[in-house]
Amino acid sequence: MYEFTYHKPQTIKDAISLFAKADDGIYLAGGHTLIPAMKVRLRAPTDVIDLSALDGLSGIHEESGALVIGALTTHDAVATSEVVARAIPALNKLAAGIGDAQVRNRGTIGGSVANNDPAADYPAGLMALDATIRTDRREISVDDFFTAMFETALEEDELIRSVSFPIVESATYIKFPSPASRYATVGVFISRQGGQVRVAITGAAACVFRCTEMETALSNNFAEDALDSIQLNADDMNGDMHASAEYRAHLCVVMAKRAVASLL
């Protein structure tokens, strides 16, 4: 790791002002993407701004038909939360499948969402649940949030405070993990609310996306065979040594069918 200056602000205002003063500042939440990248010297920030002392950024609660998860809430806290289990148990399952036990004890939802790794799990959950990302300065609809690989609508210094998930009738997440990294080769999150179905897919392409083809088919007929005729275009998929684009396109449909089956 290169050297850097460490800061531990007590308020969001201080955090933002530290960021403004830094040559190349970066926020540190759980650190389970940032620290590995710094260790192998792929990231070299001048200033690391640790968010852990900020008040009110962790915790899970229900709020007028929505489940609100603070940005610093760990994956393990989400995985084991009874509040989550009552509201959107699919998020328990999603969080329980991120990384491994030790990673879940440190990694946070805010960090994962802000990083927007194309193979991360949370982006699919946010997208399919039509979540709202609440930051220090505004609320951002998920449909506007994940803009490209490792890119989001967040401004450079903007901090996520929490993510608000509308509570839906039912939802689930099915992941086909990469055997080496355990990231999603393909992850499909499906939610149903009032006859409307949202399908979000992670891992398969450069950025999480909603599969409108599947959404239309499932909104008309929520059944596995509604997906029979769907073939995703491999040209839109990631292809690498772990899984070709064609295989990923195939897995998207298989995982989506399994998700549907589990919701029937």
Partner: peptide, 29 residues
């Protein structure tokens, strides 16, 4: 390892297992 995967560095921090290679010493203040 240097990619936070092997778990050989696992310790307990505030009662929970963490990979000590992926926690800054200052974070353990």
């Amino acid at each position: 390892c240097d990619t936070s995967q092997c778990g050989a560095c696992t310790v307990h921090m505030n009662g929970r297992a963490v990979k000590a290679c992926t926690v800054l010493a200052v974070q353990a203040e």
